[in-house]
């Protein structure tokens, strides 16, 4: 038994090697002096014989570390020194957890992406609108607002309906299979009042008379922005900037009531 400066009781083993007990710790602690460097740690045992054994093991490990250090300098982090690798298991776990991660990310993405869909308020504002057709005289046009778009509702005159097939060779897309007036109702045509060229609003010119833009005008829509011409059913003339017919919005007729927009 000897006492060092700090007053701890040391059990001398060899030169530079001793065991000691510390306050509060039930274990034996080891003290090593390897070439002038002091090492101390708990040996995590209450048994003296075992503690001695651990102390020797520790010293030889330190010596080995030191010699390796001197020889080729490949002393590494403890964790990298003794890898316990099971590669198949590792690979399987990596794949499973990557899949879980991907599902998590996708799961998080769903609500965030769906939040950009039209909200219930937008749907309410964009809901179908009703229009009473009984007050629309033949030859007259009404503009109904639907989803912030002017919708042209035209009450075709018999004369106009007669004239439409005559224009078949002057329009780009003459097919009238969708109905002469391009609607489910022979008398009324429903069109989006948006020029298919650059989104101006075409003007309604039902008169059958020579116009500045067309000598043989049989009535239709003329876009003042870039001179696109459409007939009364919204079919686009050949040789104008607009590429396609005026669009027909979804609509249904219920007796005298026109419903513009999808039915709920």
């Amino acid at each position: 038994m000897s006492k060092n400066k700090q007053g701890k009781k040391h059990i001398h083993i060899l030169d530079g090697m001793s065991l000691y007990k510390r306050d509060k710790s039930p274990f034996y602690w080891g003290y090593l002096n390897v070439g002038g460097e002091i090492y101390k740690k708990s040996l995590k045992t209450r048994d003296k014989r075992e503690a001695e054994k651990f102390l020797f093991e520790w010293k030889s490990k330190l010596l080995l570390d030191k010699s390796l250090n001197k020889l080729n300098g490949n002393l590494e982090m403890d964790v990298l020194k003794n890898p316990v690798v099971n590669n198949t298991r590792r690979k399987a776990l990596m794949i499973t957890s990557s899949l879980m991660g991907a599902v998590t990310v996708a799961g998080f993405a769903v609500p965030f992406l769906s939040a950009w869909n039209p909200s219930e308020r937008a749907k309410a504002l964009g809901a179908s609108v009703k229009f009473d057709l009984s007050k629309l005289e033949p030859g007259a046009m009404a503009v109904v607002e639907w989803r912030r778009t002017p919708i042209f509702v035209v009450h075709q005159t018999p004369k106009a309906l007669e004239n439409l097939p005559k224009l078949n060779n002057r329009v780009t897309d003459p097919v009238l299979s969708e109905g002469v007036a391009r609607s489910t109702n022979e008398k009324f045509t429903v069109l989006k009042g948006v020029c298919t060229h650059l989104s101006c609003a075409p003007k309604y010119h039902p008169e059958i008379e020579p116009k500045a833009w067309d000598e043989q005008w049989l009535g239709g829509f003329f876009c003042p922005c870039h001179g696109s011409k459409f007939d009364l059913a919204g079919r686009v003339y050949k040789g104008v900037p607009a590429p396609t017919n005026l669009e027909v919005p979804p609509h249904t007729f219920e007796g005298d009531t026109l419903i513009i927009g999808e039915l709920t």
């Binding site: 964790v79 316990v84 590792r90 776990l93 990596m94 499973t96 879980m100």
Partner: peptide
């Protein structure tokens, strides 16, 4: 399930 899988993954490495 996520926690269970991730825990297995962690333990595989924590052995070292």
């Amino acid at each position: 399930v996520f926690t269970a899988v991730m825990n297995l993954l962690y333990r595989e490495y924590a052995k070292e």
